[in-house]
Amino acid sequence: MENFVAPKRSVTVADVAKAAKVSKATAARVLGGYGVVSDKIRVQVMAAATALDYRPNELARSMTTGKSGIIGVVVGDIENAFFSLAVRGISDVARVAGFNVIIANSGEELDAEKSAVDLLIGKRVDGLIVTPSRCDRMEHLQDVRRVGVPLVLFDRSIPELGVDSVTGDDRDAAIAATRHLLEVGHRRIAYISALDADNDQITDSRQLSNSAVRERVEGFLSVLTDAGLKNAQHYVRLGATDQERTDAVLKRLLEEVSPPTALVASDSLIGLRLFRSLQSFGLSIPRDLSMISFLDADWTTVTTPPITVVDQPVYEMGKKAAERLISRLNGKELPVERATVKTSLIQRGSVAAPPPTAS
């Protein structure tokens, strides 16, 4: 017969109080991080907690203090290096400030985002950082405001929601990339996004539900329009959500009577898919097509040639979002802020003059 080993009993606040020779209320104040105690007592209690391997009961603490010590983060696609870097920035700031982070991935699906927000609110998170999958659907985010949970939007903004946001300078970044391509002689430039749509072409950029993509597309179009190029919108394509669909989007573009001579990838995942597509089609960068991608992802420096990129300081953006949220959680009265972080263009070998045969 096997010996039965009873599970070890969790160490309680009362156990710590007894070992530290203080009252349970005093031990609870020290362990919960609230109230006022002397430095001597604090050291005494923390030494006892360490000796006993005390682990705080987060649920009990949240019921006592009204705070969970947790920040909820909902991002669009954790596979995307952009969001991975952002989460690292958020987590680093949160840890230093004494907060834990719960991360949820929406996959850029509105229903998944709503479920994640509901779950995190149910977990009594102190605040939320959310990348909205659609900037035209905000009912669930309005609910977050109604229940009094501080909210910061990341990478995308919804001005009418009236909350803090941290974004890149998407319009200016697209303008810089497009101007660079014009300066080396390109006139047929395609902008390719993973934003899902029934049709891979757009009729009105104002209808794009992702504010970051909308601003990039509008910056892209403004440069081409100012240069006197007609029908620039024709070369804006959506739906590059996976490798197969990216292949199809690019194939349709290349089969046109006047195919593009340069590509702008809306993010690094799309950029990598386009690079693979061009390889599979037997095309060379930049001899056959030039390319610029958003985000200085690791892969962009190890390809042949290395890729010209819009360098987005994503880690700093994540830090800034967390700092803003934590300031609010610490009770600071702040006006609503739409923070914009500057980007820069890193020129590498993937951009050259269009081939002589392009007319």
Rank of each mutant, 00 (worst) to 15 (best):
A6V: 13
A6D: 12
P7T: 12
K8C: 09
K8G: 10
K8V: 13
K8S: 15
S10M: 07
S10H: 10
V13N: 05
V13R: 05
D15H: 14
D15C: 11
V16Y: 12
V16G: 13
A17G: 04
A17H: 04
A17R: 06
K18E: 15
K18A: 15
A19Q: 10
A19G: 04
A20T: 09
K21W: 12
K24F: 11
A25Q: 01
A25P: 00
T26P: 10
A27W: 02
A28W: 08
R29T: 03
R29L: 04
V30R: 09
L31A: 06
L31M: 07
G32K: 05
Y34A: 07
Y34V: 12
G35M: 04
G35N: 01
V36C: 03
V36Q: 12
V37P: 02
S38H: 01
D39R: 12
I41H: 08
I41K: 13
I41L: 14
V43S: 15
Q44S: 05
Q44M: 08
Q44P: 07
V45H: 02
V45Y: 00
M46F: 04
A47N: 13
A47L: 06
A47K: 13
A48R: 00
L52P: 00
D53M: 07
D53I: 05
R55K: 12
R55Y: 05
R55M: 14
E58I: 14
E58C: 09
L59D: 05
L59G: 08
L59F: 08
A60L: 04
A60K: 04
A60S: 10
R61S: 10
R61K: 12
M63C: 00
T64S: 12
T64V: 13
T64E: 08
T65Q: 01
K67G: 08
S68Y: 11
S68N: 11
I70L: 15
G72P: 05
G72Q: 07
G72L: 03
V73A: 15
V74T: 07
V75A: 00
D77C: 02
D77V: 00
I78A: 08
I78L: 14
I78G: 09
E79H: 14
E79C: 14
E79I: 11
N80H: 07
F82Q: 07
F82E: 10
F82I: 06
L85G: 15
L85S: 15
V87P: 01
G89W: 05
I90Y: 00
S91Y: 02
S91M: 04
S91K: 06
D92N: 01
D92Q: 03
V93W: 01
V93I: 11
A94T: 01
A94I: 00
